[in-house]
Each structure stands twice: as structure tokens, then as C-alpha cells.
Amino acid sequence: MVKFLKLYEKIGIFILIVAASIFLTIVSPNFRNMDTILGIIMQGSYGAIIAVGMTLALTSGGFDLSVEAVMGLTSVILAMLIPQMGFTLSIIIAILASCFVGMINGVLITKVGISPLIMTLAMQVILRGTSLLITGGRQVVIAQKSFMTIGASKVFNIIPTPIIYMVVIFIVFYLLLNQTTFGRHIAAVGSNEQAARMSGLNVTIIKTLVYVLVAFTASIVGVIRTSQTLIGIPTMAPGFTLNVLTIAILGGTSLAGGKGNLIGTFFAGIFISMIYYGLNLLNVQIFYQFLSVGLVLLFALFVNGLRIRYLESAKVKGIRI
């Protein structure tokens, strides 16, 4: 049983993906089509990109509820600035502004000692309000059609650009988390903050940088989504934070910190997208998507809870784990 649980932690998400694939192959003739598959992956890339950042936050023992508002802020900044300064500069400013927001989160969490939950929840509301203020509550259309190439074009006429971004970000963050000292120190802080501090690590800076990185990933998705629709939407993607958290937790990253599973996150993003695709086949309303994500989250938590319970009872019985 212990072995099974350890195995599940590693490959559970693949089992789910295989099951979903088989199911979709049976019910949908279109599923085997390459375009469909790429479409599913693209739809999954948005959540997966931010979930990569969220995985870092969970690994450090925290989390971030302000990501959807960061997307909205990015979108609004782009819409306001692009007419004046062009793409490159606007994108840079939007991303920097988001990183700054992440820094405020990090500093208040580490220095004032506000819990990540309250801090990022409040930040979400503040950013929503700010974004609405900037546009006066309207959605702002971006006239420059060429901006669309960023998020809505295809490389070699086959692969949608968001997939490329997802792969690049995944690789960069994977290396960061698993191959650099910084990444390993994130895990150290999440695993045992006291020992990390005693070992001379600068916990404040590590944690703050983590929140900057989460905001960075959220901002990237904000850019992609804005480019696809050419509209600056201050209230972009309501409820997307849940999506992101679900992906990270389903991917096998522990809420207790210390263990970040980015590969799991990557595939969990695709799995969630498969669920959406399946729901679309059924032609149900968007509410079912909310419902399904909520249920998937509860399922992931349920498995996690079973694990904790089993390990506890194993400990009582004296089984070496």
C-alpha cells in the first residue's frame, strides 16, 4: 500500500490521462485528429503555465489566490499602453508591473507576517478594483491586429504558440526548481523552514521571489489571452485561480510544502483540458466546467487525505515508511 501510494504520487496523473484518452477516443471520433489534440493541449496550456508558478509557491509552503487578478491587470495594461508604445515595451511593462505585485505579496507575507491566504485574497480584490479603475470598468479593444500573432498564431502552421510558451516555461521552471540552488532552497524552505533558516538560507528573499515568479507566470498567460481576443478585460478569467490550484494539487504537489512535482503539474493541466473537451462534447453549459473543476479538486484532496491517513495509521502500527 505504501508503495502504491508512492507510485501514485509519481504516475497517478498519467493513469488519469490514459483513462480520459480511452474514454474520449470511444465517444468522440474527432479526438484522434491531430488538430483536436493540439487544441486540447493549447486550452490546457493557460492553466498549466500558471500552475507551474503555483507549484513553486506550494513547494515553498505558501500559495497565491491573486493570479486571476494579475491576468486581468496585465490585460488592462496592455490594452492601455499598446496604442502608445507598441507591443514590446507594453508587454515588458505589463509583466514588470505584475512582478511588482508579486513582490508586494511576498514582502507583506514574509515581513508583516500576514498569512498567504488573506494577503493574496485581499490582493485579488485590490487588483480587480485597480484594473476596473484603469479602464473605467469597460473592456478595451486593441486595434492593432498584428498583436494577435503572439498568442493566436501557429508555428510551422501546426503548433499553436501557447503550447510553445508552455513548453519553454515548463523547461525553464523545471530546471530552476530541480537543478539550481535557488530551486532546491525553495523546497528546503517548504520542507522545514526552521532548519532552512538554521542552515543559513535567506528565507525572506526566497519566499518573496517565489511570489514574484507566480505573478510572472500569471502575467504571461494574461498576455497570451489578451493577444488572442484583442480585448483588454479587467475581470479576465473569473475563477481561474481554482483551476490553477486544482492542476497543481492534482499533479501531485503536496500542500504541506517541500515537494513540487512540475511534470505532474504539466500533465494535470492537459488532463483538466481533456475534461473540458469532454464536457464540450456533451454540449453543457460553462457551469458544469466549474462544477467539474471543483469536483476534481475535491477528488485530488480526497486522495491526498487518504494518503495522510494511511501513513498515520502505518506509523501507529510501526510500519517503516
Binding site: L242, L245, F287, F290, G294, L297, L298, F302, N304
Partner: peptide
């Protein structure tokens, strides 16, 4: 029973309840 921080469980419920209300 899940032994998981309440906020994350209830965050899931936030969406489930709302979705059921819609549906």
C-alpha cells in the same frame, strides 16, 4: 476527515456550490 486545510477544501466547495446553483 480529509485532514486538509479548510480553506482549500472550502475553495473547492465555493465552485461546486455555485455551479450547482447555476445548473
Amino acid at each position: 476527515k480529509l485532514k486538509i486545510p479548510a480553506f482549500i477544501t472550502t475553495l473547492g466547495m465555493l465552485f461546486v456550490f455555485r455551479a450547482i446553483a447555476y445548473i
